[in-house]
Design a protein around this nucleic acid. Sequence first.
DNA 1: ACAAAAGTGTTGTTACTACACCCATGG
DNA 2: CCATGGGTGTAGTAACAACACTTTTGT
Lengths: 222, 222
Amino acid sequence: MQQTTEQNIKVAVDTAVFTIADNHLAVLLVQMKQEPYVDLWAMPGGLITQEETTEDAALRMLREQTGVTDVYIEQLRTFDSPQRDALHRVVSVAYIALVPSADVTLQTTDKYKAVQWWDTGKLPPLAYDHPRMIDKAIRRLRAKVTYSNIVWSVLPETFTLSELQHVYEVILGKPIDKRNFRKKILSVGIVESTRQKQAAAAHRPAELYRFTHRLLKYIDIL
Amino acid sequence: MQQTTEQNIKVAVDTAVFTIADNHLAVLLVQMKQEPYVDLWAMPGGLITQEETTEDAALRMLREQTGVTDVYIEQLRTFDSPQRDALHRVVSVAYIALVPSADVTLQTTDKYKAVQWWDTGKLPPLAYDHPRMIDKAIRRLRAKVTYSNIVWSVLPETFTLSELQHVYEVILGKPIDKRNFRKKILSVGIVESTRQKQAAAAHRPAELYRFTHRLLKYIDIL
DNA sequence: ACAAAAGTGTTGTTACTACACCCATGG
DNA sequence: CCATGGGTGTAGTAACAACACTTTTGT
């Protein structure tokens, strides 16, 4: 239900892009050039255009600002404190994205001083209300991996069960029992064996698996 | 991260207000007067003002349009299809509210033809993208009652366990075993006995309970 | 032969489901 | 004394948690 009133509010999107880097959960940030936020870091984002959806805007900005293309993305929530941006009233729709670390060829644009992955445990000083956004994004991500199959979006086409387990351990931030994990993950049927083995490694080669569906499915996992 | 661009977008809120009416889950709707939506029904809502948050706006509109005041409210998600409103580009932040049925003294304002509760199983023709919003709201509500204590917001200060069970049955749309329900609900400790009995009824009087906390808590319930 | 990760079962405990009868009160 | 909803326990089943050793490969 809408009525007409005077209003001059801008609509933006901001995206928390996550990946798995070695042994930590990493988030993609850009370092700003403009006042009043010079040198602070922020999530990639910006104002939407008149005709695009917020999701399309988020995808476009990821492409333009970071070179990231094939991503899983979902809406997190909208942040709308009147003071969240120092210059204008800006309502921001926050998104979460997950990318396979391999995919990421970071672009450095002249709009920012830098574009970089940051360990979520050691974040730099952040602009706007981005600390809170990132906190909410991590909570949602942790919850969601336990009742859906979204981890497909950080893994390559084929992978070993140990790699899969490692992804869960990094996102949840705690160790998982190997035998229980394998039993559970196989029983819920989100992955299937390729009947192929990992290429040469200095140890017994692992069997390679793939996801049965590379689409969001809701299933109790951990 | 924001940059300046030409943009003329309005920001609105829409709230799905739920209550328990007899044996069904009911949602509060207003019947519209303006073109092009004459006679269609919609959730209470409207444009936010320059200085208020979307949550404050949602609460204000509930007060103004329906007389509803003491409510539990939470953000659902933002709906932003460019075509969702026929006249302007309007991005709407949708909220869910829960009210005790007793509280509700519906106001009829001259802005609408009518304000009325509707059984969620038999909804009238709806304006905008409100069918989808209501569908999402019901799903979220069903999920949330199973892992939080939010049902406190539809019950009076004291209540019987049968009344509590009835609320769950209506929201979830399925019967629940009485003995298992009581065992579980008492074990998670979200309610406590008042050591008082229900006033005269034509049957054995039930013990009255109250919620230990009338704030959102996350606990596995059903 | 050694290092390094892969792979595999069992047992105890806890939570969930299904199910039927007696109790207290008002009319 | 009858109708109405209130209140209670148990047994079988399924899910979860804890735990250690053998296998396969490369060097």
